[in-house]
Design a protein around this nucleic acid. Sequence first.
DNA 1: GCCAACGTTGGC
DNA 2: GCCAACGTTGGC
Length: 152
Amino acid sequence: MPQKWLIKSEPSKYSIEDLKRDKKTLWHGVRNYQARNLLRDQWKVGDILLFYHSNAEPTGIFGIGKVSKIGVADPTQFDSKSDYFDPKASKETPRWFAPEVSYIEKFSQPITLDDLKNEKSLKDMAVLKKGNRLSVQPVSEDEFKIISKMAR
DNA sequence: GCCAACGTTGGC
DNA sequence: GCCAACGTTGGC
């Protein structure tokens, strides 16, 4: 059974629509060590990703993707013109990683943050915990099942 | 745009 | 290794 994750993105930067159009993308720009450790050490090809829009109207889960490649060094860390440039990173010892993420589906109706909050069985979900700003979060099998049901 | 809740940096 | 200052995230 593939592990399930929730990934956050600001739709003004990259939305589920963008992923639908591109079919796949390098998930670059993660610059938080906790999130990096998850996607570097725990993501496996085939893992399922809930695509969450943050800083949006509305916020919530907009669709599903999957991990299609792992172990790729994030190219933006080497690009001095990029916002994500990291002068301390080198090609020999990359510091940041960018798995390839592929499109699966866009929900016909998003599951909004309010929907998630109103679903009592999801009260322990990481994304609902106060102050949880992590852009990559594990999702339990039960949580995924409930969300899949809500998406129909 | 505000601001709470973090995470990171850097002086000591 | 502490911790103040600063930067970022993300809901509202």
